[in-house]
Simulated scan of single mutants.
Amino acid sequence: MMLRKTPLLVAISLALAGAAEADDFSDLYSSPLPRPETAAPADKHAVTYLLRGLVTAYPEQTVLNTEDGRVLILEISKEQTAQFDNCTVEIWGKAEASDDVDTLQVYSIQEYTPDPGAPEPPPHKSKYRPAEFLGENNGALEVGNLRWLEPAAVSHDFSWVRAAIRPELIKNIYFVTKVQPPGIAGHSLLFYEFNDGGFAAADGRRSKGFFLSVEAYTREGEGYTFLAGFRKTYNIIWLLTNFEDYAMYGAAFAKDWLNFYPVLTDQAGRERMVRDTVEQASVNREGEWYHSTRNNCTNNLVMMINHGLSPDRRVEMWAIPNLIYNLYATTPPLVPVYLGLKGVLGPKAFTIDNENYRQYIPLPAPELPPAGPAGI
């Protein structure tokens, strides 16, 4: 069976591709369709950055030292290197992929002088925090800024916790589509399910696993629209939450439904995905821009799935190398079909919705009152 790229399918793909977690998806379904060439980059570099820092030229390479301590290799002309060596600059650059951001191809550079009168942008929404990798302790990966919700919550009253993740206890990994009315998948996630003891908060609370959700890093007062995602409007965040948080956020409070498709790889591949996901979720992505088709909620998950596959099974991210991005690897409703045909995803294992979520997230057993004196 072949997936034929009809004009209608391309149009639907572009209309739905990579919708980040939004407060309201009505814009997604009502927006006019962008032209197909909107999604066609000029080269193989898919991830855009805007950064400021000090340029330093060495005999073997030129680097940018950012204010927050990152050191990135710049692909830049000799003339620009000579002009901006030892200068504080603002650059626009591109990385090949979001798991390979140590080298940037520079396409715009100018000297930068801070403006003390420039207004501060609004803070990011409180439901977002970048994960922090805190180190490894006796085989457990310790992660900070993981969003956590208790199963008895009656609203999305989450907290931020430190958690321990044991890769060797990973049980299954699922590609998840989040479906909203009128029934089209507009967001994707990965869910990592663990055997008992594989995932727990630092205070001992346990959960069956965690979600990875790659989203537009919106600010207070800012909404998400699909078309704005093409125009360098939003930065990007890789968010980690416990199972209860995102499952209840979607199915209990927002009345969406979540479809779970198992990733078909071996135990070594699953463990590698766990480690690499923690690493990538903890990368400093300040200055990285969300893009509705090339750096979105879905293609980054397919990229992470590739980390768990042998080279001969990996999904091609470019339909035409260096020219057209593979829409079947970046569009939520198409990925399960496409990766299913390639033997990367299995059939849908289960669905969590507003009617059945308590089957998967049972309420904790009530605490029994202390026993009274004997004979009473």
Rank of each mutant, 00 (worst) to 15 (best):
N259I: 05
N259M: 11
F260Q: 09
F260A: 02
Y261T: 11
Y261R: 12
Y261P: 11
Y261Q: 06
P262W: 04
P262I: 05
T265G: 10
T265Q: 14
T265R: 11
T265S: 13
D266Q: 11
D266S: 10
D266G: 14
Q267P: 06
A268N: 09
G269K: 01
G269E: 04
G269A: 06
R270V: 02
E271P: 02
R272C: 11
M273N: 01
M273R: 00
V274K: 01
D276N: 13
D276I: 06
D276C: 06
D276K: 15
D276T: 13
T277R: 09
V278M: 05
Q280F: 10
Q280V: 10
A281I: 06
A281H: 08
S282F: 05
S282T: 12
V283Y: 09
N284A: 10
E286A: 12
G287S: 03
G287T: 00
G287V: 01
E288Q: 12
E288A: 15
E288P: 02
E288G: 05
W289R: 12
Y290E: 00
Y290V: 07
T293D: 13
T293V: 08
T293L: 05
T293S: 07
T293C: 13
R294M: 11
R294T: 12
R294H: 10
N295S: 15
N295R: 09
T298W: 01
N299L: 09
L301G: 06
V302L: 05
M303T: 12
I305N: 01
N306A: 01
H307P: 07
H307Q: 15
H307W: 09
H307M: 13
G308C: 00
G308D: 00
L309D: 14
S310C: 03
S310W: 03
P311R: 01
P311V: 01
R313C: 07
E316A: 15
M317Q: 13
M317P: 06
M317D: 03
W318Y: 13
W318E: 15
A319L: 15
I320M: 07
I320S: 10
I320E: 14
N322A: 13
L323S: 15
Y325N: 09
Y325F: 11
Y328A: 14
Y328Q: 14
Y328F: 12
T330F: 04
T330H: 10
T330M: 14
T331E: 02
P333L: 00
L334T: 03
L334S: 02
V337M: 12
V337W: 14
V337K: 10
V337R: 12
Y338E: 00
L339N: 05
L341E: 15
L341N: 06
L345G: 09
G346H: 12
P347A: 12
K348Y: 04
K348W: 05
F350M: 08
T351F: 07
I352N: 03
I352Q: 03
I352G: 04
D353V: 03
N354H: 15
Y357T: 07
Y357H: 08
R358H: 14
Y360Q: 10
I361M: 05
L363V: 09
P364R: 14
A365P: 05
P366W: 03
P366D: 08
